[in-house]
């Protein structure tokens, strides 16, 4: 039934866009607003590595054009940051003191780079690559630099390493066993990865940890616990992602690592849904909340959130066990239950 509601979606990734377009398809009259802290239209994060390598330009990252939003009367609020949510007045407070009222809210704010607690003193020395904002100016630095240090070992880390070595750059990787968070790489897995990465020509350090990073005149000197010292133009950190939900804390929403939702994407508060990698979805099979990553999952969840917001009753299937291929090493995951139980997978 047509409404004149205002649906607000926080996040301009696959989940947020699926939700917005689903809402529009099923409610032609409602006002729909997408709010994103990034000042760029919906783009492909997986292509960022190619973008940084100079193989594609900014236009090639685009998933949707501005015109598609205009045609569907979906309003984009780019470059705007949500400071907090006020569920009582059904409004969002943006960081510049603006209040945005909603009748229903879908949080699809995604995830951000994980900064290891031990690395906090060196946060200013680390470069993260999780979104387009991170890459501004980075392309030139990579092109101009000759030697780079990578700390971590998540899915993107190895792609990134290969991109750099393909560009003829000298790369040192310090493999961190907890980078593929929440899993810990076993010794066998680490050995296999080191072996499989050998053809890249990168220096791989395992069974070691970062000790200090010293910045001097735009260069970095990285020292490991075992005393290995490496000079680098940039030090990259790839240690997984964590849900981007800080703005939602304290408003009454139940939040663990991510925002807790049931299988219909409903949160603990009325009129608020969450989906994508910012959400932890209840899994009745194991009676706990798990999260899922990946573009297709996010799209499904966004669509389900949109439909259920409009009064339907759809459920997402719990993320099942899955194998990730980490440089030839297959990692079986059913995610959070392993974390909760403190097991290695």
């Amino acid at each position: 039934m047509p409404t004149h509601d205002h649906y607000v979606i926080i996040g301009n990734g696959p989940a947020g866009n699926a939700a917005a377009f689903t809402l529009r398809e099923n409610d032609p009259d409602a006002a729909i607003t997408i709010i994103s802290h990034e000042n760029i239209c919906f783009y492909s994060k997986p292509k960022l590595v190619k973008y940084l390598a100079g193989k594609v330009d900014e236009d090639a990252l685009a998933v949707r054009t501005m015109d598609e939003y205009r045609r569907r009367h979906i309003r984009l609020r780019l470059g705007q940051t949500v400071a907090h949510i006020d569920p009582d007045s059904q409004s969002l407070h943006l960081s510049h003191m603006e209040k945005v009222h909603y009748t229903d809210l879908i949080i699809a704010s995604g995830a951000r780079a994980r900064l290891l607690p031990s690395m906090k003193p060196y946060a200013d020395c680390l470069t993260f690559v999780t979104e387009f904002n991170d890459t501004r100016g980075l392309r030139k630095k990579i092109a101009d630099g000759s030697r780079f240090f990578i700390f971590g070992g998540d899915l993107v880390a190895f792609k990134f390493l290969k991109m750099l070595t393909d560009m003829g750059k000298q790369v040192t990787l310090l493999l961190y066993p907890r980078a593929f968070w929440p899993h810990r790489l076993t010794k066998d897995m680490q050995d296999a990865i080191v072996k499989n990465l050998a053809p890249t020509g990168a220096d791989i350090l395992a069974d070691d940890d970062l000790d200090t990073i010293v910045q001097d005149q735009g260069k970095y000197c990285v020292t490991t616990k075992q005393g290995v010292r490496t000079q680098a133009d940039l030090v990259f950190s790839f240690n997984g992602l964590i849900p981007e939900v800080d703005f939602a804390r304290g408003c009454g929403l139940e939040i663990d690592h991510g925002i807790l939702v049931d299988e219909t994407m409903r949160t603990s508060l009325e009129h608020i849904f969450a989906c994508g990698s910012c959400a932890q979805i209840y899994n009745p099979d194991i009676n706990t909340y798990t999260t899922s990553i990946g573009w297709p999952n996010a799209q499904v969840q966004g669509k389900v959130a949109g439909l259920n917001l409009l009064g339907e009753h759809h459920k997402v299937r719990p993320a099942g066990r899955k194998y990730f291929d980490l440089e030839g090493v297959k990692i079986k995951t059913s995610w959070w239950e392993d974390l909760e139980k403190g097991k290695d997978t």
Partner: peptide, 11 residues
Amino acid sequence: KPHEEDESVVA
């Protein structure tokens, strides 16, 4: 002070 969406230039 806080302002409503329709009073915000960036909105």
